[in-house]
């Protein structure tokens, strides 16, 4: 742990990410005002002692909305990363460990998914099961699958040429055991770094999908949905656009800095100067 925080970018990124995450978690149990509370007479207030970030076009408290929106963004992106890892990593490892037709199938499958941008998948899912946050999670998650499959396969292939994998095969391990014992532990750092990157991309995608009305639906809120609600009023009440926009930017920057820091901290090449298995 001490080693991890020796990298300043990791410490800054991780702390910033945790602060946003904490804000999101707090919104689950407490927000200054209920986010569903519509109060037209108090709309378009600027920052006041009571409403720190003002109120929106329906008189909802902006701070409460940002808190709840941050949580939605994190939740959607995180579940999408879990879906992507859960399906993509086993596929990628299988491709590397079995090779041959399995590898071909995995690669073609990921090409196939890559061919559809997340927005198209989201439209498809919306048509099938209707709009909502789960729809965004599914769309982004499906998009994450080939990303993790390719990263896992690439990392595993470079590990698979090393002698300890051959030693494992000599010891009678089957492909699944090789993947589990030898390949997966050695690509974990790659996967964690890719996970933080996909996390930040997921937050952007969620905002994008909500913005075009395919993601989170009212009365739930998300940062993208807030942008959508505020866009027509940008010139009159710029704060309503700037606040959620800035929140998205800061979260994504925090995650990227944390990802960079993690890569520096985890990468064995930079650690002990020992020959790296992921050359």
């Amino acid at each position: 742990m001490k080693r991890l925080f020796a990298h300043p970018s990791l410490a800054i990124g991780l702390i910033a990410t945790l602060i946003f995450l904490a804000i999101g978690v707090v919104s689950l149990v407490w927000t200054p005002f209920p986010i569903e509370q519509i109060d037209i007479p108090r709309r378009f207030l600027g920052p006041t002692p009571e409403h720190w970030l003002g109120t929106d076009n329906l008189g909802r408290d902006m701070l409460s909305l940002v808190m709840a929106g941050t949580w939605t963004s994190f939740l959607v992106a995180a579940v999408a990363v879990v879906i992507g890892m859960g399906v993509g990593v086993p596929l990628g490892l299988a491709a590397a460990a079995w090779g041959g037709p399995v590898e071909w199938l995995v690669l073609r499958l990921s090409d196939f998914i890559f061919a559809f941008p997340a927005v198209i998948v989201a439209i498809l899912v919306t048509t099938l099961i209707g709009p909502g946050a789960p729809n965004a999670i599914l769309a982004i998650g499906i998009f994450n699958i080939p990303v993790f499959a390719r990263v896992a396969r690439g990392g595993a292939l470079s590990v698979a040429t090393l002698d300890f994998v051959a030693a494992g095969r000599l010891a009678g391990l089957n492909n699944a055991m090789i993947a589990w014992r030898h390949l997966l532990p050695n690509i974990m750092s790659l996967l964690i770094v890719q996970g933080t990157i996909q996390m930040s991309l997921g937050i952007l995608s969620e905002a994008g999908l909500s913005y075009i009305g395919l993601g989170t639906q009212p009365p739930e809120t998300s940062l993208g949905l807030m942008l959508k609600d505020a866009q027509g009023l940008f010139l009159i009440h710029p704060l309503l656009t700037i606040i959620p926009g800035l929140a998205i930017v800061l979260i994504v920057i925090a995650l990227n800095i944390a990802g960079d820091g993690l890569r520096d901290a985890i990468d064995p090449r930079l650690r002990q100067g020992n020959p790296n298995v992921l050359a």
């Binding site: 002698d163 300890f164 051959a166 030898h182 532990p185 050695n186 974990m188 020992n274 020959p275 298995v277």
Partner: peptide
């Protein structure tokens, strides 16, 4: 194996 550095899994 020839290479003593590659013949052990660094994570085990």
């Amino acid at each position: 194996f020839q290479d003593p550095f590659g013949s052990f899994n660094p994570r085990r």
